[in-house]
Structure formats: structure tokens, C-alpha cells
Amino acid sequence: MTTLEPPVVARPTAGLSRLVDRHASALPTAAAVGILALLLVGAQVYFGNFLTPRNLSALLLDHAYLIILAVGMTLVILTGGIDLSVGSVLAFTGILGARMLASGLSPAVVVPVMILGGAAIGLMIGVLVQYFDVQPFIASLAGLFLARGLAFVVSLQSVKVQSSSILWLQSTRFGVGDWYITPTGIIAVVVLAAGAFTLAYTRFGRTVYAIGGDEQSARLMGLDVARTRVLVYVVSGACSGLGGLVLTAYSGAGYPRNGIGTELDVIAAVVIGGTLLSGGVGYVLGSLVGVLVYGTIKTIISFKGAEQSWTQITIGMLLLVFIVIQQVIVVRSARRR
């Protein structure tokens, strides 16, 4: 009987470590969910009035454009790339849209132009990366410069939006009790759902993971690596265009200095959400958690009335913690191999 005892005792821990091993790729995302919960509960205990429906609704809606950008960025990072252009493209499409609306064009024309404008810059980056072997960092850097410059070419000052249908996107509130959501929030949720579905269930989505995992193998499996990689940047560009629309509706104006440094916030949110920068591992829903962590920290700091510079410092530190966690996971899985 005594000989049977050790395995019986060891089973729970063995089961746990097997669970952790099997789902090692989901571990960073799980950690992000834990941190978000901790932040929210901690803030509720500290302030007493933090977890209100109104506050949580605002948390989602204030960062709707970040969520949209994060979906596109997640796809790019999953292929092992990076897209530095998102903040500039956001500003460019936003000011372009505002200017076109101001000159009397119908939103039915303006909105597609904004999304296609973002997609066109994404296409340029994708072609540079795929067909000219330019590093994603440098190719998207060219995209960043181009879009930021074009934004100032369109207008040097901010342009107010008077179009009622664009403003409707932000001013309308569908509510249940104190919970509410605006059309911009709905756009973000739809993009998020579409991104999650595409990555999990479509040929394109699985190819994205395959490229990030091992490009050579993906190619040998006969997957269309070239088209997928270009498409990933096009999708990210289109997301930035859509983000420009949402931000324009949110702020009621286009401004060429919008979104400076946003690419860093988005990358930080995606990494905190559990996507490995080396590619192949990560989830769109994790990026949502990353954005919410970012938003919660920002809200807590404004609740406390402290300097907003603490947001940057906290996000930087959190990013570091997550990178170290990821590093441990990568080293572990490499050792097992």
C-alpha cells in the first residue's frame, strides 16, 4: 500500500504542471486576465466607487480605437512582424476624413476612403516586407513617416467635424440600466469578434499562426505565405483607417498630431495581452485584455488625481514584467524540445 502512496499524492501537482505545460502558450494571457482582475478589484477596494457600470462602459468606449488598432497589430505580430505606422495612419485617415466631410462629401464616400487609405499604406508596407525583404521595422517606419507627413499635408490645423452621421457614432447611447454602448463601441466589438473568428477558424488565420511559428515549414506545407503576409499588413492598415474614423467621431475633429506614440501603446497592450513578439503565439482577445489593463491603469491614475506620467511609467514596468514572463516560457519550451 505504501508503494502506491507517492503517485496518489503527486497527482494533483503533476496534473497541474501538465495543464500548465499543455497550455503554456495561453499562460501570458491568463496572467493578463489575472492582473486586470487584480487591478479592478484593487481599485474598487481603494476608491469604493470604481466598479460602476458607467465607469466600466467608459473604459471600453474611451479605448475603442485602441482595441481596433490592437486587433490589426495582433495579426502582424503573430506573423513575427511589427507595424509602427498605426498611430500615424490613424492621424492621416482621421484628418483626411474630417477634411473631406468639411468640403461637403457624403459620409458614404468618406468612410470607405478612410479605410481604403489605411489599407493602401498597409499594402505598401506589406509589399516592401514580402517582395523586397525589407525588415518589418524599417518598412513600417517608412509607413509611419509617410502617413504622418501626409496628415500635415492634408491640414496643419485640426478640422472640426459637423457631419451628423459621423457624430451620431459617438453621441448615440444604447443603454441597459447604467450600462451603455455607443456605435463606436459596437464597431470595436465587431472588429474584435471578426478578428478572433478569423484567427481561430479560417484558413487565413491559421496560416498567420503557421508563418509566425515557422515560416519555412509553412511554405513547405504549401500555405500561401506571400499573400497572407501582405494581407496581414493590409488588414492592420485598414484597422488603423477604421480607428481613425472612430477617433474622429469620438473627439469630433481630425487633428494631424493625433496618435503620436500610439503605436507603442498598442504594441505594449498586445504584448501585455500575451502575444509573443517572436510570433506564432497569442490571441486577439488577449489584446483586448491588454488594452483594458492599459485603460484601467490610466483611469486609476486619473481617479487618484496623480500625474498622467505615471501611466507611462506603470505601463513600461508592466511591459517589462510580461516580457520576463514570456522569456521564461520561451526558455522552458525550448528546453523541453
Binding site: L264, A268, L277, Q312, I313, M317, I323
Partner: peptide, 15 residues
Amino acid sequence: QPIVATLVLMLAGRG
């Protein structure tokens, strides 16, 4: 990775 390591300071440094 260098790009991530220095990103931390790029974010936090201005703060």
C-alpha cells in the same frame, strides 16, 4: 529582445 527591452524605457522614460 533588444527592440522590446528598449521599448520599455522608451515608454517609461518620458514619464
